[in-house]
Amino acid sequence: MPAISSYEENELLTRIAEGDAAIYPYLHDTYYNSLVYFSLSIIQDLQQAEDIAIDSLVKLWQIPTRFETTGKLRGYLFTLVRNASLNYLKHLKVREKTEQEVLTDTKAETLVVEADLMHLIYQEVALLPESYRQVLELLYMEDLSSAEAAAQLGISMENLRQRKGRALKELKNTLLRKGLSDVLFSLIFF
């Protein structure tokens, strides 16, 4: 999915083994969101999921790893995150004695697909011009009311209404230009 080639993966692992910290931002941008999403689906605690994702990425530097074949880095990271998430739940269970849903192997795989898919869909919105994107984010992803969104952006309600209209049109056009129907569009902005 967020496909990095096997060449890139080798290069990445080499640089990590050499103790190169400068590669971290790239690695973070590639994997961080998916790993947090994955952990969040298991433990339902955003802050904790963020910590687990960072821990897992940092672990690559703590214990530089090589794999027998390429294409395993992503799986390895998801594995680290799953293990840490389950570990966290175990402690939680001891403390709070709550029943947690069992994370089966198939469930973990499904969650990876879900995280990857969100990554892809979100990219479509990220391609919009900044001012449009802001409006859509506030209204649809943060569920603000029009008045709240306008206040946050420091623009008038009328201005907000115009920007929203243009943003939706822009997004629709992008999808149409690619020869696509607007199924996704109506899914996101129902």
């Binding site: 496909a3 799986g75 390895y76 293990n83 697909v113 990857d116 898919l117 199924v183 996704l184």
Partner: peptide
Amino acid sequence: MAKEDLPFINTELPDLVAPLLQKMLNG
């Protein structure tokens, strides 16, 4: 971490499936 009793997550299939689902959603 209790690594020993948990299998490695294989992302081969998810790598292929997620783009297909996106295509489907895009119509």
